[in-house]
Amino acid sequence: YGYLANTKVKFILVTTDLEVRDADVRIFFRKFHEAYVDAVSNPFHVPGKKITSRTFAESVSNVVKSFGLGSTG
């Protein structure tokens, strides 16, 4: 699955789950995009550089975990 943000940033989701609903994928990308925007809006983030924020990593981890739980139940 792919997502193109209005700033031309591309997100790609690769999954082995064959029963993924499109609505779940949209929710996943929306939450992931929110975490990304929060991270790059940090005044200490250098555009074009790797995001090293621990908060961003935790947010992404939570999004992935919630998506995994939502798709199995």
Rank of each mutant, 00 (worst) to 15 (best):
1 Y>D: 03
2 G>L: 07
2 G>N: 06
3 Y>S: 11
5 A>P: 01
6 N>S: 13
6 N>P: 00
7 T>Q: 03
7 T>G: 03
10 K>H: 04
10 K>C: 04
11 F>R: 03
11 F>Y: 14
12 I>P: 01
13 L>W: 06
14 V>Q: 08
14 V>H: 06
15 T>V: 08
15 T>Y: 01
15 T>I: 04
16 T>D: 06
16 T>K: 13
19 E>W: 09
19 E>H: 14
20 V>R: 06
20 V>G: 01
21 R>I: 04
25 V>N: 03
25 V>W: 04
25 V>S: 04
27 I>S: 08
28 F>W: 03
28 F>Y: 15
29 F>K: 01
31 K>A: 08
31 K>S: 04
32 F>D: 00
32 F>P: 00
32 F>S: 06
32 F>L: 14
33 H>T: 09
33 H>M: 10
33 H>W: 12
34 E>K: 15
35 A>D: 02
35 A>T: 04
36 Y>W: 11
36 Y>C: 02
36 Y>L: 11
37 V>C: 08
38 D>I: 13
39 A>G: 11
40 V>L: 10
40 V>F: 01
42 N>T: 07
42 N>Y: 09
43 P>V: 15
43 P>H: 06
43 P>T: 12
44 F>I: 05
44 F>E: 13
45 H>R: 14
46 V>C: 03
47 P>N: 13
47 P>C: 08
48 G>H: 07
48 G>M: 08
48 G>Y: 06
50 K>V: 14
51 I>W: 01
51 I>L: 07
51 I>S: 01
52 T>R: 11
52 T>A: 14
52 T>P: 02
53 S>I: 07
53 S>C: 07
53 S>Y: 02
53 S>A: 14
54 R>H: 05
55 T>N: 10
55 T>V: 15
55 T>A: 06
55 T>Q: 07
59 S>F: 09
59 S>N: 10
59 S>G: 06
59 S>W: 05
59 S>K: 15
59 S>C: 05
60 V>H: 04
61 S>R: 07
62 N>W: 13
62 N>Q: 14
63 V>N: 03
65 K>H: 13
65 K>V: 13
65 K>F: 15
66 S>E: 08
66 S>Q: 08
67 F>C: 02
67 F>G: 00
68 G>Y: 11
69 L>P: 01
69 L>I: 11
71 S>K: 12
72 T>I: 14
72 T>C: 04
73 G>P: 05
